[in-house]
Design a protein around this nucleic acid. Structure first.
Ligand SMILES: [Mn+2]
Ligand SMILES: [Mn+2]
Length: 548
DNA sequence: GTTGGGATTG
DNA sequence: GAATGTGTGTCTCAATCCCAACTT
DNA sequence: TGACACACATTCAA
């Protein structure tokens, strides 16, 4: 029961209240006292103050000049600001450093306020700001009003952004989504599948998990600033959650990579050791090689090849072991690679991407080439296994804006959805599979699905698939996607070429001058060859190009 | 004076 | 010519506003 | 806000 009639609220305020209710309902036992206080205080604020606070929380920065807070639905903000101040949700005329000042002032204002400090008044704003950082240093702080003498435009500083970010994190289970999900869904711009789940389902099971993710975000910020040491030191210790530990390992891997860039190989090794992220062992071997510890590198590489974590690791290690074997004077058996069918053609250079030019040249009365890359087979996969993707599996869905189950990329996704996946295979056996697919396409059109790119799939394409691609080929391809969903939903050839007359098709990877097959593309080609799926590479040369 | 990258908005 | 590392552009929700660059 | 594919540079060994 709310004190305010929600119908009269601006859209963003009722969305905010909805979010607070959800969080309160699911996380009541995990909320800190200050978060409980915030919920109580916020609801007692005047509507104008609530509106102003939410407006500020939804904007990107922490500081706002009065003149930039103009909202018709709020009107004069003086009263609202006073009230927010009273509860320490905002501070008026905060103490700030010069960086905040340059960010808040226009270039012209900087020159007005600091003209006498500046050596090059004609420089760009960026350069002026740099000069002022030099001049004042980032540690000297003053009240905004002391910096902005004569501007007569007070500054407000938000005090509760962190707490709100934390509430958002609880609601969404990730730091990427925010309140815009609500309005975009209302407007029909985003559409999500509706999945039943009970009121107690939540992303985090205890407070340590929430704090863990927050701490991980702090570590990632250091990493973005190319500060691997700080990132490493601020990384949270492993915790009682597999998915959070996986995020930790991936961040740790990235930190290691950054250490490598800085040639700090020992630190890099400490990141890769005992790291379960699938690319970590490969980096570990490479670092050992860079340190010329060839014997250790060779042994770890052999170990990885004996029990590869995935095909990507296997492929990398097969390439490395050849080099390493020479270094340690050892013999290794070299895997035989099936030759990939390839052609060349000459096209006249144009502004369009080479894939489109090639598609055009491969399209005729009988042939039609379409630039689909990953979208065709992933899309068909997503439509076929819709029920598996959106099965209301316990804990997989916990808010209304999820385009995928939370555990989609975990190893037991397939086993926990075995029944639904089996139903998908069964569906493919039915004679009306393609009709069912087309119906499903219309039925679900526009609903977010991690495999379906709606702008690429259309009914014409579905008809061509029906006519030209054998069901068995689809099943074969889906099997590999399912085998390793994350790795194998990319690397598909650029084009699918349909032949209406012969009712056949071919997958074509287009390579312009200077481009080569990538590892994940090679893995798919290897699979295509082993399963007699028609695929080839088309090397494009530019007409009248002397370099051949 | 125009253009282009952001931030903001619903 | 492989193998590797690294940088870039493209998806973007779309319309509008603001501000700081400039014969783009 | 990454993920992905591509473009380009460097290195190294036959
Ligand atoms: Mn491509
Ligand atoms: Mn290509």
């Amino acid at each position: 029961m709310s004190y305010f009639p929600e119908v009269d609220q601006p859209y963003y305020l009722s969305n905010f209240h909805t979010l607070l209710r959800w969080v309160e309902q699911r996380y009541d036992d995990l909320l800190l006292p200050k978060e409980h206080d915030f919920l109580d205080i916020f609801r007692q604020l005047s509507v104008e103050s609530q509106c102003l606070l939410v407006r500020m929380l939804m904007r990107t920065k922490l500081h706002f000049r009065y003149s930039k807070l103009v909202y018709p639905e709020i009107g004069n903000i003086d009263v609202a600001v006073k009230e927010l101040c009273l509860y320490e949700l905002v501070v008026v005329d905060p103490v700030v450093d010069i960086e905040i000042v340059t960010g808040q002032m226009l270039k012209a204002e900087l020159i007005t306020c600091f003209g006498h400090d500046l050596l090059l008044p004609k420089a760009s704003k960026k350069q002026l700001s740099e000069q002022l950082y030099e001049c004042y240093g980032l540690q000297s702080k003053k009240h905004w009003s002391k910096w902005a003498v004569g501007l007569d435009d007070p500054l407000i500083q938000l005090q509760c952004q962190d707490m709100f970010d934390c509430l958002c994190l609880m609601f969404f289970g990730n730091p990427y989504q925010d309140l815009t999900e609500f309005v975009l869904t209302d407007l029909g711009l985003f559409r999500y599948e509706t999945i039943p789940f009970d009121d107690s389902t939540r992303a985090f099971q205890n407070r340590q998990q929430i704090d863990f993710y927050r701490q991980l975000l702090i570590s990632r910020e250091f990493l973005e600033q190319d500060l691997p040491d700080q990132a490493f030191d601020s990384l949270p210790a492993p915790i009682d959650s597999d998915w959070l530990n996986q995020k930790r390992d991936k961040t740790l891997y990235r930190i290691g990579y950054e250490f490598e860039r800085k040639s700090d190989f020992d630190q890099a090794l400490s990141c890769y050791l005992d790291n379960d992220y699938r690319r970590a062992r490969e980096r570990h071997i490479r670092v050992l090689e860079k340190q010329q510890r060839y014997e250790e590198a060779f042994q770890l590489c052999e170990q990885a090849l004996a029990e590869p974590l995935d095909e990507n690791e296997q492929q990398s290690c097969q390439k490395m072991i050849k080099r390493l074997a020479r270094k340690v004077a050892r013999k290794v058996s070299i895997a035989v690679v099936a030759p990939i069918e390839q052609h060349t053609c000459q096209l006249s250079y144009g502004p369009e991407p080479v894939e489109l030019l090639a598609a055009e040249s491969l399209t005729s009365q009988v042939q039609q080439a379409i630039y689909v890359e990953n979208s065709l087979f992933n899309g068909l996969f997503g439509l076929t296994f819709w029920e598996a993707v959106f099965k209301p599996y316990p804990g997989a869905f916990f808010h209304p804006f999820q385009s995928a189950p939370h555990d989609l990329y975990t190893t037991d996704f397939a086993s926990t959805r075995a029944r639904e996946i089996a139903a998908g295979w069964e569906r493919m056996q039915q004679p009306d599979y393609h009709q069912w697919l087309a119906d499903r396409y219309l039925d679900k059109y526009g609903i977010a699905n991690p495999f379906v790119n709606w702008s690429v799939i259309d009914e014409t394409l579905l008809r061509l698939v029906q006519r030209c691609i054998p069901i068995q080929h689809l099943k074969t391809i889906f099997e590999r996607i399912l085998f390793d969903i994350k790795s194998n939903s990319s690397g598909f050839p650029d084009l699918v070429v349909f032949d209406r007359c012969q009712s056949c098709y071919r997958l074509v990877e287009v390579k312009g001058p200077g481009d080569r097959l990538q590892d994940n593309q090679i893995r798919w080609f290897d699979y295509f060859i082993r399963h007699q799926i028609p695929a080839s590479v088309l090397y494009v040369q530019w007409q009248n190009d002397a370099n051949r």
